[in-house]
Design a binder for these strands. Structure first.
Lengths: 290, 290
DNA sequence: GCCCCGCTGAATGACGTCATGCACAGTCAG
DNA sequence: CTGACTGTGCATGACGTCATTCAGCGGGGC
């Protein structure tokens, strides 16, 4: 069952289950039959096994308990978990070798690694909670993301708006951007949510400078803790982007954004109520198909 | 089912079983559930499937007969013969520590499973290539995504614009939406890229109806092959969304979007030139920090 | 507004599966 | 030869699984 066993064939692994036990002749026949039909064994009922082995059904049950299982179904569960079912006898190589995979599959797998790192990072919930507290407390809550990151900001803002009373999406650059940041600050904003992905637009830095001048606390999701935006951020949480394809993939940043939203819900006392309220009006207006 | 399918992943093969059948919403949920639990599916009883899918047991039986099987056991036999049972590379078998993880980490891990399924699906590059060909050939190229999916559409459109000469982002509903679709068709568009995520807005369906009336070929990225938009789509590629958190996570759809873009680059002869050109002007304008 | 039809879930009954009790055969010791 | 013991199959009852029936519900057509 250890990794060493992985190399063994199905029937070999099956044998290990049985060896070392004193078995009656009938039980040996059953064991033999199971090994012969290793591929099918996880699907067979006790009567089917009995027929194949030429023994009675109770003998099969007794065989299972003799091996220490709670009963025949318990033994069969073990067979299932063994993952026999021998994939293709000639089985060339469905090995996890990356070489077999095409470029796109490799890109997806690379992105999985990014998510895995994010999961590790989340083992410590403290930064997320702190960020969520800051964001939840801000009225209004400006959400900033330019160019490639605009999509992230938009997604975040869309959902944030369902639980936060005043979300302002800032997803376009230009001279109006600074205006809008100042307006948000004037309206009472205390924090700003920023998505910063490569390639970092210069105007994003300018916008963050304005935000800090206005006294806003900048919470940033960036693809690296060492991104140039780090010195413009009060709190930065990293989430790597994938660059295996022509264009960057930002699964981890999106995921982190949702995690932040989740944490914000815990901080916003009326979040649940707002969600329910939205559900009602949505149903009333026939917004969704469902 | 043929030997060609051998290379496909379990869930991909499972999908082939179901596609092409008109299914009721409940039956789609069942199909969706079976795909999600592809590895366990050959072992599940009808009641277990029903519980996982959140439907009644008779609905599972009806689902089986609707697909042409003699009953649920007959369908399950088919699942067994398909030889799913995950020889999964990384295998979801890394779950024993799930209890130790916090809610957010579990959500990330669940999303990883979604990406893994996407990787499986990409073992067969044909649908992606076909979609990319359709999209690359369309001038202009309308990109549709409403509400939650608007962020996806925006991200796709942003990058698509770097290699395609005329991308039109349609990320807002309302009566103008139909106008814009018709205008795109009148301008020569032959295809439309659509992101359809739960909860499916009604106006998205209306928009797709307009698009088809205009003769546009609809390429859809949806969270399930059984999404309601499937019948409004000429080509649908599924990418699951995560629903472990308060708000859905759409890593796999985003990833699929980038994969489509990558494939489009191969179809657009001048893609490389456009990218280089953009780099030059970006450098000249000092757009990015780099 | 009404009816019809398709979809769905609760209840029901037939069937299969499994574990236990019991009887019988074989074996060995006294 | 007898008694005890082990191993086995048969019979039985509890339980789970599955297909059918029926009633309720909601949407589309007249």
């Amino acid at each position: 069952m250890t990794t060493a066993d992985e190399a063994l064939g199905p029937s070999a692994r099956l044998l290990r289950l049985f060896e070392g036990n004193r078995l009656t002749p009938t039980q040996r026949r059953i064991a033999h039959t199971l090994v012969q039909h290793a591929a099918d064994s996880p699907f067979l009922s006790s009567v089917e096994v009995a027929e194949l082995a030429g023994v009675s059904q109770p003998s099969v049950t007794r065989f299972a308990v003799a091996l220490g299982y709670d009963g025949y179904p318990d033994l069969r569960k073990q067979l299932r978990d063994l993952g026999l079912s021998e994939s293709a006898p000639g089985g060339p190589a469905e090995s996890p070798g990356d070489a077999l995979r095409n470029e796109q599959q490799r890109a997806v797998l690379a992105e999985i690694d990014n998510l895995r790192r994010l999961a590790e990072l989340l083992a410590d919930p403290e930064p997320v909670v702190r960020a969520a507290r800051l964001l939840a407390a801000s009225r209004p809550l400006p959400v900033l993301g330019l160019r490639a990151a605009a999509a992230q900001a938009r997604g975040f803002a869309y959902f944030a708006g369902k639980v936060h009373p005043d979300v302002r999406l800032l997803d376009e650059g230009g001279s109006m951007l600074a205006d809008r940041i100042e307006q948000a600050a004037a309206a009472g904003a205390s924090a700003l949510m920023c998505f910063a992905l490569p390639r970092y637009p210069r105007e994003l830095m300018d916008a963050l400078a304005v935000a800090r001048d206005c006294g806003l606390c900048v919470v940033t999701v960036a693809d690296s803790a060492f991104a140039p935006v780090s010195r413009m951020s009060d709190l930065l949480i990293p989430a790597a982007v994938g660059s295996s394809l022509v264009f960057d993939t930002a699964c981890a940043p999106m995921m982190l954004g949702r995690v932040l939203l989740q944490a914000m819900c815990d901080e916003l006392p009326d979040a649940e109520g707002r969600l329910e309220c939205f559900e009602q009006t949505a149903a009333a207006r026939g917004l969704f198909l469902d």
